[in-house]
Simulated assay, not measured.
Amino acid sequence: MPVTIDKEMVTATPAALDLIREIQRDHPDILFHQSGGCCDGSSPMCYPADDFIVGDSDVLLGHIGGVPFYIGAAQYEVWKQSELLIDVVEGRGGMFSLDNGREKRFLVRSRVCSLP
């Protein structure tokens, strides 16, 4: 069972919410996962909910557009003092992410905040 924190730490721009709705027309039940690393691992990835196994060490940061947004435990430790804003930019999504092939992709913007 993933870890859940008390305060939602993730929000989305109107463009991101639009892309989520677009994806949900093809895949109604989705989730996001943010991991650390290079290449696709540094972008928020959008998966069909039944195609991704959420790990016991993953952290549920909150929901955007009603969709759960998880982050790997190691990446959470790096970003735990940040608020994440999910946005959309032109370009190709991650190879396995559902935004791939739509000529726009999700992007994380962050700002440091003071959390209890």
Rank of each mutant, 00 (worst) to 15 (best):
residue 59 V to M: 09
residue 40 D to P: 00
residue 61 L to V: 12
residue 9 M to E: 15
residue 1 M to S: 14
residue 87 D to H: 07
residue 112 V to P: 09
residue 47 Y to K: 01
residue 80 K to H: 01
residue 27 H to Y: 14
residue 43 S to F: 04
residue 38 C to Y: 13
residue 90 E to F: 07
residue 101 G to L: 01
residue 116 P to N: 07
residue 81 Q to C: 15
residue 13 T to Y: 14
residue 5 I to M: 03
residue 73 A to S: 13
residue 99 D to F: 00
residue 73 A to N: 12
residue 63 H to G: 02
residue 71 I to L: 01
residue 72 G to E: 08
residue 67 V to F: 08
residue 40 D to M: 04
residue 30 I to Q: 10
residue 51 D to C: 02
residue 6 D to K: 14
residue 70 Y to R: 02
residue 110 S to N: 10
residue 8 E to F: 10
residue 68 P to F: 10
residue 71 I to F: 00
residue 55 G to P: 04
residue 33 H to Q: 06
residue 116 P to G: 07
residue 93 G to P: 01
residue 97 S to T: 13
residue 102 R to W: 02
residue 90 E to Y: 01
residue 96 F to R: 05
residue 110 S to L: 15
residue 103 E to N: 10
residue 79 W to I: 13
residue 87 D to N: 12
residue 101 G to F: 02
residue 71 I to G: 02
residue 73 A to I: 00
residue 74 A to G: 05
residue 76 Y to W: 08
residue 43 S to K: 05
residue 67 V to P: 00
residue 104 K to D: 02
residue 18 D to A: 14
residue 41 G to Y: 07
residue 3 V to G: 13
residue 9 M to I: 15
residue 8 E to P: 15
residue 26 D to T: 04
residue 71 I to K: 05
residue 100 N to F: 02
residue 51 D to M: 06
residue 5 I to V: 05
residue 40 D to Y: 09
residue 96 F to P: 02
residue 73 A to V: 03
residue 24 Q to S: 14
residue 10 V to K: 05
residue 8 E to T: 15
residue 32 F to W: 08
residue 108 V to S: 03
residue 22 E to V: 04
residue 92 R to K: 11
residue 75 Q to W: 02
residue 37 G to A: 13
residue 11 T to L: 12
residue 93 G to T: 06
residue 76 Y to K: 04
residue 41 G to C: 06
residue 112 V to S: 09
residue 37 G to K: 12
residue 50 D to H: 14
residue 12 A to S: 10
residue 41 G to E: 06
residue 74 A to S: 06
residue 74 A to F: 04
residue 47 Y to Q: 05
residue 62 G to Y: 03
residue 9 M to P: 14
residue 48 P to R: 10
residue 112 V to W: 13
residue 12 A to T: 11
residue 29 D to C: 06
residue 7 K to A: 12
residue 10 V to W: 02
residue 94 G to K: 01
residue 92 R to S: 13
residue 66 G to D: 14
residue 84 L to P: 00
residue 19 L to G: 01
residue 80 K to M: 04
residue 103 E to R: 09
residue 7 K to H: 15
residue 79 W to K: 14
residue 88 V to G: 01
residue 3 V to E: 08
residue 78 V to L: 11
residue 3 V to K: 14
residue 33 H to V: 09
residue 53 I to L: 09
residue 92 R to D: 15
residue 34 Q to K: 09
residue 33 H to W: 06
residue 95 M to C: 11
residue 71 I to R: 00
residue 37 G to M: 12
residue 92 R to A: 07
residue 77 E to Q: 07
residue 64 I to G: 08
residue 2 P to K: 09
residue 104 K to G: 11
residue 113 C to Y: 13
residue 109 R to N: 03
residue 25 R to W: 10
residue 35 S to Q: 11
residue 78 V to H: 11
residue 107 L to K: 02
residue 35 S to N: 09
residue 43 S to N: 12
residue 114 S to M: 13
residue 82 S to T: 10
residue 70 Y to P: 07
residue 8 E to D: 14
residue 4 T to H: 15
residue 67 V to L: 03
residue 90 E to H: 09
residue 20 I to N: 00
residue 19 L to Q: 09
residue 25 R to F: 04
residue 4 T to I: 15
residue 8 E to M: 14
residue 8 E to I: 15
residue 49 A to H: 11
residue 100 N to D: 13
residue 50 D to S: 05
residue 33 H to S: 09
residue 2 P to C: 04
residue 88 V to W: 04
residue 110 S to T: 07
residue 20 I to G: 03
residue 9 M to A: 15
residue 111 R to E: 12
residue 45 M to L: 09
residue 45 M to N: 06
residue 5 I to Y: 01
residue 12 A to F: 15
residue 68 P to C: 04
